[in-house]
């Protein structure tokens, strides 16, 4: 007789609240993966989370963990300050592309280079979500946004930044992977990556960075299903999935 695996709600997830995320947004999936990883590792009481500025600023409303709200882009600096004081704790940041790859580019590069064992979860949905769909550093060429109404032009705005590739040139990080959240086969891989990123820190092995390609149906102006398709057809070719660095 085959066993049926029943998925419950992670214990870290706060069941008494509803998220503010738009229908079809993949933040919910990413949040769940973070909760599952922390729960599976049994480190809930050791974790200190840092919420970014962006749609996920209220993520602490949904996860039963110690949390702080960071200034825009500065989450990796806060994380480093905490880890310097409490090396035995598990410290993670969860940041969007505007936060991490634009205003916080200095902090993320130097935090990755310094190499304190932290966990960085990077949500790349190629747009500013909370402020209403402006062009992000990861917005694709030709992609329309409220500040690139004719589509992003390389001549005026440069090219979309590939963070995994850029950070993989540094000696500091132990593990860097890019995954996607659009369908089960990708989510299974994303789950393994997030779990590994927390495990590496919990076991004192090193600094991990996981980029999760995510959808923003509202600001992309698409139905959720179309958004998933658009991500796979447009983002995945430019932001290839896979492992960019692994100390193991």
């Amino acid at each position: 007789m085959s066993e049926t695996q029943v998925f419950g709600i992670p214990k870290i997830w706060k069941t008494d609240v509803h998220t503010h995320y738009c229908p079809g947004c993949t933040h919910g999936v990413a949040h769940r993966l973070v909760c599952e990883a922390i729960e599976e590792l049994g480190i809930q009481n050791r974790v200190m989370g840092i919420a970014p500025v962006g749609c996920a600023v209220l993520m602490h409303e949904y996860m039963d963990l110690d949390f702080i709200e960071a200034p825009h882009g500065r989450a990796p600096a806060l994380a480093s300050g905490m880890k310097a004081v409490r090396p035995e704790k598990v410290v993670f940041t969860y940041q969007g592309d505007g936060d991490l790859a634009s205003i916080g580019m200095g902090e993320i590069v130097h935090t990755m280079n310094r190499g304190l064992p932290l966990t960085i979860i990077f949500i790349n949905n190629a747009i500013y979500g909370m402020t209403g769909g402006q062009m992000a550093p990861t917005t694709l060429l030709g992609q329309k946004s409220t500040t690139s109404p004719a589509g992003r032009s390389a001549k005026v705005s440069g090219y979309p930044i590939r963070m995994c590739e850029l950070l993989a040139t540094l000696e500091g990080p132990a593990y860097i992977e890019r995954a996607a959240l659009t369908q089960s086969k990708y989510i299974v891989k994303a789950k393994q990556a997030v779990l590994k990123a927390f495990k590496n820190q919990a076991e004192g092995k090193g600094l991990s960075f996981v980029e999760l390609l995510s959808t923003c149906p509202t600001n992309w102006g698409m139905r959720p299903v179309d958004a998933c398709k658009w991500l796979e057809e447009n983002m995945v070719p430019y932001y290839p999935l896979g492992v960019y660095k692994d100390f193991e």
Binding site: P71, A77, L78, G81, K83, A84, V85, G106, E107
Partner: peptide, 12 residues
């Protein structure tokens, strides 16, 4: 900019 945010993390 990073100093003061390292400080904020430590202070927390």
């Amino acid at each position: 900019v990073a100093s003061v945010n390292l400080l904020m993390g430590g202070a927390a």
